[in-house]
Amino acid sequence: MAKQSFLIPLAIFLALVLILGLGFTLDDPHRLPSVRVGQPFPEFSLPDLTKPEIERTEGDLKGPALVNVWATWCPTCYAEHEALKVIEQTGVRIFGINYADDADKARAFLSDLGDPYVLNVVDADGRLAIDLGVYGAPETFVIDREGHILYRHVGAVDARVWQETLSPMIQSLAGAGSG
């Protein structure tokens, strides 16, 4: 065998180490990036949570705004709720999608803990969530004026997430015209 070919195993190994080392620079392996980013908000026609006789559609979600996917069975949503109330105080619109939940429990949740949402939509069977590419709760989307999805955050929104990521986004969207 040619003398240089003995170096091949070493070369392969070094390439492998490089790739594995790269692995450390990557994002959390458990976080999925959203493939819906850049696309219009999915179409839907679902009842409003607090006023069930009204049907809401994607046109009712007027951006720039946050769209928050939540449920009463989701423990972190309780903590997030407080943060959302604070965020709402800053004048940002927050829409809610009540995900695979008991509507009565959800209404009780809002009346007990406060309602920072402009409106809430009942996604009882989770179809809208699937269309959004949601895989757990809570998740929060940022939409622009045309109703396109700009960003998805997985997990609870807290002060840090708001300050570092979501707020700048909303502000730049609002800055482009009337909010």
Partner: peptide, 14 residues
Amino acid sequence: IYPLIYEAATGGLK
């Protein structure tokens, strides 16, 4: 290890 390579090469896609 391909998922790793892919993620690094595409800048975050999984």
